[in-house]
Design a protein around this nucleic acid. Sequence first.
DNA 1: TTGTAGGCGTTATCAT
DNA 2: ATGATAACGCCTACAA
Lengths: 338, 338
Amino acid sequence: MSREKRKLVSIKDIAQEAGVSPSTVSRALHNHPHISTETGERVQRLAHEMGYTPSLLARSLVTQDTATIGLVITYTADPFLSRLVQGVEETARNSGYSVFLSSSYRDYERELEVVRSFHERRTSGIIITGSQIDTDYLDLDDRFPLPIVLINCRTYPYSVSADKISGAKQAVEHLVQLGHRRIAFVSNAKLSTDLDRQTSYQQVLREHDIPIDDTLVVEGDGMLESGVRAGQKLLSLPQPPTAIFCFNDLTAMGVLTALREADLQVPRDCSVVGFDDLEISAYLCPPLTTVRQPCYRMGQAAIRMLLQLIRGENGIQAEILQTELIVRQTTGLAPEPS
Amino acid sequence: MSREKRKLVSIKDIAQEAGVSPSTVSRALHNHPHISTETGERVQRLAHEMGYTPSLLARSLVTQDTATIGLVITYTADPFLSRLVQGVEETARNSGYSVFLSSSYRDYERELEVVRSFHERRTSGIIITGSQIDTDYLDLDDRFPLPIVLINCRTYPYSVSADKISGAKQAVEHLVQLGHRRIAFVSNAKLSTDLDRQTSYQQVLREHDIPIDDTLVVEGDGMLESGVRAGQKLLSLPQPPTAIFCFNDLTAMGVLTALREADLQVPRDCSVVGFDDLEISAYLCPPLTTVRQPCYRMGQAAIRMLLQLIRGENGIQAEILQTELIVRQTTGLAPEPS
DNA sequence: TTGTAGGCGTTATCAT
DNA sequence: ATGATAACGCCTACAA
């Protein structure tokens, strides 16, 4: 690769070479209806020979459309997000859009900064996961006058979410049916959508007249290590739980580790349920019972909604996708009270 | 959010409002040296009040610099890549660059298509993982006259790689030291860098006068499911291996699953070594012995090299980062020959 | 210190 | 069917 910066060939260069005007070249390149096949072909051939690559930059400037979207995720390392990113990226590309990716680290200022930078780049719209700003975007409308779709934020009008309420209910119900009465919950205090799970958890317990014990609700942060600590904390209780419902699969993996380190058998001594259904969850030891979120489809739905907003369509409503309990081998009958 | 498309305020609008020329506004916004503090402040204030957001699009067109890079990855769902993406994204952003993300699915045409689209967007440079095109880029120089850095492709002059040769050696050596003589290898036929591992594998065996048995080398594709199949295949051998060295951690997880389903204990009946050291690998059951690739630092090194290329610096050389054997609990002494 | 003018690479509107 | 011209929003000599 020669390293000096070369000047790229432009429409003007082709025009000169072909002995026509730049506008003719532009038209020829776009298969404009009223163009003679002769010049059309000549221009096309010349463009190819000269190694012409159109500048979407310049095009965007005049068409006022970058065909670009911004995707804000919390952490690139979060495995829950990778399939979602895939859904967004594939669907966007199939619609001719490129996607900018940046992460917010669940930080309000960072997120604001990223959204601002996307707006400077004149992205046609933005998709945000785990937003810390959420409904404040409605007020920031004049600062960011471009369509925004949020993921898992049901209070915002343009959003795509998984039905966590129903998912959490199914999970806890499943444990109750197995005879568990001391059911713990490991939360993610940082996340507002965590409330759905916790509310469902409490509701199911109440419906079955199971007393709610606050010591059985432990705070986590959705990461592996916090799952380990939460597990240890729960095991050190005078009356440890016989089942643990976790905020997500990563937390569940941490809890499983804590149980193993305490020489407890799953599910014989304690049942565990996760949330997300990561690809790896089916390959854990034992394979994890969990609530599946349709990550790929959520990403896909988000970009579709965003494209509708970009096109100025009306009647767009928040979407809620179904979750599904996947019963594998980390849940079993409650141990007999000894 | 009001849904009609508003016209954004431009430098001209501010100029008119402030009663100065557009160039003065431009200078004021950039803290140009020769500008009166009075107008400077007035313009800044006005810009803020009017909700001005500069168009990097227009700016890029004139400065011939988009401050944008393209990142091509094989699959967004590959957990090995998430930390690498993080390294690229964070470092890029800290240098004022935004990053486009797209995936190639390890397909030559797809990759070409993505690179072309990045070039159309006039990205300042491109980073590519798992390239199928690799050294062909040297010939494609006229089609893509922009800096390209490859990851894990040592035959290309501008590349960042992990030292897989040494890593694989350490892994197999470790198994030999534990007394294993029937050591299997699960490969990834799709990937050229796989050869490094396989070569090291054979070399270590030779060094220890261990006969090389071709039936102990099984093809995989680096995904979970292929690990399961490879494991099953190896177990069905008349003389199954006592240790399995896997192309990556995902494959190792699959192998572990196959072993568990066959009611074999790890490492008592069979040892397993992975490659990558994903975050979750430390939390498997048992925790996985593996070769760590410094994913984050590889991403960081790649973007640094790319920025050097963009700046036109000389003397840039391919970088090779060290790998490290992380011994956990899936490896143990070879079982006594029965 | 500020304004004028030209240009970045395209597309779009008028003519011809 | 093609060409001239203006415009997108910004930057930057050069001139004043």
